[in-house]
Design a protein around this nucleic acid. Structure first.
Lengths: 149, 149
DNA sequence: TATTGTTATACTCTATAACTATA
DNA sequence: TATAGTTATAGAGTATAACAATA
């Protein structure tokens, strides 16, 4: 025994490593799943943000999602093309574009949510009900502390 | 109550969403942390893979990490420049480049592991010891099922 | 002819900077 | 002059395809 150089279980067993690698795998999987809807993860993230806030300017949404305003433009463009969001100029400040989720957008978001739930099931197949609850709670606490929804 | 359209807590509370977003945040944080060592996450992943396997050809490592062989070349190039890995031609099959972790590589890997542990602490600051154990176990089970180390 | 590693090229994602219109 | 949104441009990261050496 002793400090065998070459044992990297140290790194790979950290939460940082596991969250990073699992996050990538899961996101890739989700990306393939929503591809048929003409969506990428960021589009879904934007719809989810709109689902919570109901109404917000592009700048506010960009700040909330931590992306550049220029990226918000192309995300909104694409969702508008799909009929998932509406752009309305704020009459009080005509510089602001206010985004709202349409009924079609809500339907798309619902389908994505359903797909995510199916993936959740697959992902947690090896866990007991108790373990799933504990996992969900731990992720929730960490997400809030990190300023995530 | 009722089915209020616009409530997206459905999506954002899935494990898929939480793993994806937390994975990104945590990886970005780790990336900044190791920047001073001249490393990117993939370099660390390669060193960790070498730490476990001790010796492997570039093709084997590329397959294990799920990256293109061409990317393995540049990762190995960079680590070789840092003195973290050695390339040795397999005498039995001179096409194969066998990679091994040097002592310097082990030192670098150890420092990265230490940084990851510190981040783990920060990340799980809001969790009880019991919750941390439960989280680690759940992540471990899911990682194995996903074919991750 | 098939395989390993390498190099050349192209594609995706996203940020920064320049620009337009409103304020 | 400052800000919201847009457009143009550039950089990072990585894959695919073409190539060289070896089997």
């Amino acid at each position: 025994m002793g400090a065998t150089a070459g044992d990297a279980s140290g790194l790979t067993s950290t939460v940082v490593f596991r969250l990073g690698t699992l996050g990538t795998v899961v996101t890739d999987r989700f990306t393939r799943e929503i591809e048929g809807l003409g969506l990428k993860p960021k589009h879904v993230g934007l719809m989810a943000a709109l689902g919570r806030a109901a109404v917000a300017s592009q700048q506010e949404l960009a700040a909330r999602m931590g992306v550049a305003p220029s990226l918000m433009v192309s995300l909104a463009d694409h969702l508008e093309d799909l009929g998932a969001v509406q752009r309305v100029r704020d009459p009080r400040d005509r510089r602001r574009q206010v985004l709202t989720l349409t009924e079609e957008g809500q339907r798309l978001l619902d389908r994505c949510t359903s797909m995510a739930r199916t993936l959740d099931e697959e992902l947690m197949a090896g866990l007991t009900e108790k373990q799933r609850k504990a996992l969900a709670e731990a992720l929730h606490v960490m997400a809030k502390r990190a300023g995530l929804p």
